[in-house]
Amino acid sequence: MAKSIASEFTKGLWKEVPPFRLVLGLCPVLGVTTSMKNGIGMGLATTFVLLCSNILVSLLRKVIPAKVRIACFIIIIATFVIVVEQMMQAFAYTLFLDLGVFIPLIVVNCIVLGRAEAFASKNGVVKSTADGLGIGLGFTWALGLLGAVRELIGTGSLKGDVFGLIHWDVPNIFGASFEPFGFAVQAPGAFVILGLLLCAMNLIPSK
């Protein structure tokens, strides 16, 4: 049992990490990853919603009638999204400004609803927690990685913090004469760089 919980957790970190393995939830992936900070912030926000909704859905799975389950899940998810929105405004306002409309959009992130429906509504609380946490953290590192790559190429530096807890500031990694490749932090660059990262991930086997 312990092993299977661990595996539910770890599968999200590597084997089924969205959006690299499960190509889902792309809107925030492309939209907010102009910097590593934003990527991680968005990832953590999603993780919170994913975790809470997975737990709650799993708890209520016997009560909710099948026909309206999607609607119920949406209410649950939307509630937690608003919680995140409010909390973020209260405690990490600048990050909230950067993430903008993408915070409310967590509600339509396929991963969140997908895990609720495919996993939490059919499994117990412990497993669902592990699943939610695993997938969420996988999503977070993926977003962070994409953000970091884009920030690095696009600006030449890495700078930011997570909720004021951890700070990093690495200026001019490629030397002072580096001319930042502005394409990377622009909209089309997001697609292209994610595409190339996916290619790199495909080269690494999932096992």
């Binding site: 009638p65 309206v68 119920c72 209410i75 509630t79």
Partner: peptide, 17 residues
């Protein structure tokens, strides 16, 4: 039951929020 569950969830959510 469907309507009830949906409504109750909405209400709890609305109040909490």
């Amino acid at each position: 039951k469907m309507v009830m569950v949906l409504t109750i969830l909405s209400v709890i959510s609305g109040g909490g929020l």
